[in-house]
């Protein structure tokens, strides 16, 4: 944290803006909202940079303590969610195929089934759906855990032991969530593509497996793999940063944890959708 203190983001000015009642005047109200937004962006940006700095500068510090924490977070944000993602992949395949087969058949474009699957599942729905599910399942838990730890004085205890709270609490979550979302997205996409063909087969679509996978392969370019990796890791980074920031960077009382959780989920959701929009532009440009 900034200067190594737990109160780095809790200046009196910030507190006034965040906790004082909103003024009745419309322009003042708008101004206060805008200032709050800018302060949040500033705080999140600073927290992200601090975390990246700690991630790099303390990469080899206390490996025997931090690496097991990273493995635990990868398990939590990845491996343990696999059963749910198997279900989701089957559902996603059904959803996309179920909607597209009838339309593609009508216009005689069934040969584009593979292309549609790549555009919809690989580029858009796969990463975004994974991010949102991980946000709901693990991101919320992050805010509650860290907010409670903050309220119970555990962060101060770490600082008293000269243990950097960002290194011990945030870095494992960032790494775990980035790798977890990347891996789960890959599983979700593969599962959805396979189940998609299964649903197409059950609808008597005249498409052989070889042709379906040829369509998929021809629709995929190297840029899809690069951007998919970048996008999923960025989603993981953003969700971890936003949820950890709201749980950790400001002093919380226990009764404030639920409010912080709601704020974190809303902001992470908005940030992920905005990032997705940026990647759409990248896809279009590339």
């Amino acid at each position: 944290m900034q200067d190594g203190t737990a109160s780095a983001f809790d200046t009196p000015q910030v507190r006034l803006l965040f906790r004082a009642p909103l003024p009745p005047s419309y322009t003042n109200f708008l101004g206060r909202k805008l200032l709050r937004f800018l302060l949040t962006v500033q705080g999140l940006g600073a927290f992200a940079l601090i975390t990246l700095g700690v991630l790099v500068s303390k990469f080899s510090v206390a490996r025997q303590v931090v690496r097991p924490l990273m493995r635990r977070e990868i398990g939590r944000a990845g491996v343990r969610l696999l059963p749910m993602f198997l279900y989701l992949s089957a559902a996603l395949g059904l959803l996309v195929i179920g909607q597209t087969v009838s339309w593609l058949t009508r216009v005689g474009a069934i040969n584009f089934l593979g292309t549609v699957m790549v555009v919809v599942v690989v580029r858009e729905l796969g990463p975004l759906l994974t991010a949102l599910v991980v946000l709901a399942r693990i991101g919320t838990a992050n805010v509650v855990e860290l907010g409670t730890a903050r309220a119970m004085g555990e962060v101060e205890a770490l600082e008293a032991l000269a243990i950097d709270p960002v290194h011990y609490l945030v870095v494992p979550r960032v790494v775990g969530m980035a790798l977890g979302i990347f891996s789960l997205t890959v599983y979700l996409i593969v599962g959805a593509l396979l189940s998609g063909y299964l649903w197409a087969f059950l609808q008597d679509v005249p498409l052989l497996p070889g042709e379906y996978f040829r369509q998929l392969a021809s629709a995929l370019g190297w840029m899809d793999f690069v951007l998919l990796g970048l996008k999923t890791v960025s989603f993981g980074f953003i969700i971890a940063i936003v949820t950890c920031y709201h749980g950790l960077a400001q002093p919380l009382r226990l009764e404030e944890v639920s409010g912080a959780t709601v704020r974190a989920v809303a902001q992470a959701l908005i940030a992920c959708v905005l990032l997705d929009a940026v990647f759409i532009i990248l896809y279009l440009v590339a």
């Binding site: 206390a62 025997q64 409670t148 730890a149 119970m152 004085g153 555990e154 101060e156 243990i163």
Partner: peptide
Amino acid sequence: FDGGQLLNHLSIAQNLALPLRYHHN
């Protein structure tokens, strides 16, 4: 600390071990 301020996700033994493990890897 006044209340001990132990880390609740660790056991008592793990709490004790933490500073030693962290600073001596």
